[in-house]
């Protein structure tokens, strides 16, 4: 058994699997239990990590567990985070924090009351290209920021458990589930937002195909444009362009591949080039390490419930603007 904090993971989907891998790597935490409604998903993680398969209620009730990691669909976050906090556990919760502000407030309140820490999985703040851009801007690389453009997506809607992403009431769709990453990054970079205006194919087109364009005015004066796409546009990619009074930063993940592999198939048919990335560390691991280190007193700050709440506000304002056709003030 490893020394350090004992973690119980609730939800063994894509994110749960990524988090489980992080606990395997970091030194001062151990994944001891995992729960998923699909026994085979929980078992797969247990086999890899040495954790025990248990139910969510068992994990929350276990006095030996210090931290609960919630990787459930968005609409379930509130119930499990509140229960974990009431049981005195620190909680790490996947983004988006919740489906509504009311739910997010209840989560914050429960954690504050219990005196436990709440971390929200805005992992983009741990991706090296975003971190470096943030640092460069803060060091004056572009002067005062004027216009920022962000892009995320280019692949069809992911199919997850019970296809919950496709259910707008449960997931909030593309805007709440995916480009909240960019809202969070922008807020980190530029401070509070003032006004949001957004358009989406939602309501104009069948649900699985979603494309959204969001404009945000920040209190700093800067304006930002966010493009989100669950349309097949050549595979997942991200972009950002940060233009300021003295310079410009331009990033396109499609142009930042250190490795491209093209292999012919056995019958000699030319292969398709596949880019490969090479991390110093997987950003999901860096993110979990940060949370554990804060609990451990080794690092100072996390992306906490207040941060998650503010980024959620922008996403929900964008959804409101999409529905009403009017700008939404924050």
């Amino acid at each position: 058994m490893k020394p350090g904090l004992k973690v119980g993971l609730i939800g063994g989907g894509t994110m749960g699997t990524a988090h489980a891998e992080a606990y395997r790597v970091i030194e001062n935490a151990e994944l001891v239990a995992v729960a998923d409604l699909r026994p085979e998903r929980a078992q797969a993680i247990a086999t890899k990590t040495g954790a025990t398969v248990r139910t969510a209620s068992e994990i929350i009730a276990d006095p030996n567990i210090d931290v609960i990691d919630v990787c459930l669909p968005t609409y379930l976050h509130r119930d499990y985070v509140v229960a974990a906090a009431e049981a005195g556990k620190h909680v790490f919760c996947e983004k988006p924090m919740a489906r509504s502000l009311k739910e997010a407030e209840e989560m914050k309140a429960a954690c504050e009351k219990a005196g436990v820490k709440l971390g929200i999985g805005h992992v983009v703040r741990f991706f090296p290209e975003y971190v470096r851009a943030y640092e460069k801007v803060k060091a004056g690389a572009v002067g005062d920021v004027a216009v920022v453009r962000c892009t995320r997506g280019g692949f069809p809607l992911p199919t997850a458990w019970q296809d919950w992403y496709a259910n707008y009431e449960l997931s909030g769709g593309l805007v709440l589930d995916m480009i909240i990453h960019d809202f969070d990054f922008l807020r980190w970079l530029l401070g509070p937002a003032e006004r949001v205006f957004a358009k989406s194919t939602r309501g104009r087109e069948y649900n699985r195909l979603e494309y959204a364009l969001v404009t945000i005015k920040f209190k700093s004066g800067a304006i930002a444009h966010v493009e989100g796409s669950w349309v097949n546009g050549g595979g997942f990619h991200t972009r950002f362009e940060i233009a300021g009074s003295n310079g410009l930063i331009d990033y396109d993940s499609r142009k930042a591949n250190p490795i491209t592999v093209t292999v012919a198939s056995k019958d000699g048919v030319p292969g398709v080039p596949v880019p490969a990335s090479a991390w110093v560390e997987n950003p999901y691991t860096t993110e979990i390490r940060n949370f554990i280190n804060v609990l451990d007193g080794k690092e100072g700050t996390i992306v906490d419930g207040n941060e998650g709440y503010e980024s959620l506000r922008i996403a929900l304002a964008a959804l409101e603007s999409i529905e009403t056709g009017k700008p939404v003030s924050l």
């Binding site: 004027a146 006004r195 004066g221 800067a222 444009h225």
Partner: peptide, 17 residues
């Protein structure tokens, strides 16, 4: 439209979305 004068010391807007 969101537009503003954010970059240059000029009379008109220089940024627009």
């Amino acid at each position: 439209a969101e537009y503003d004068r954010l970059i240059h010391d000029i009379e008109t807007d220089d940024c627009g979305l």
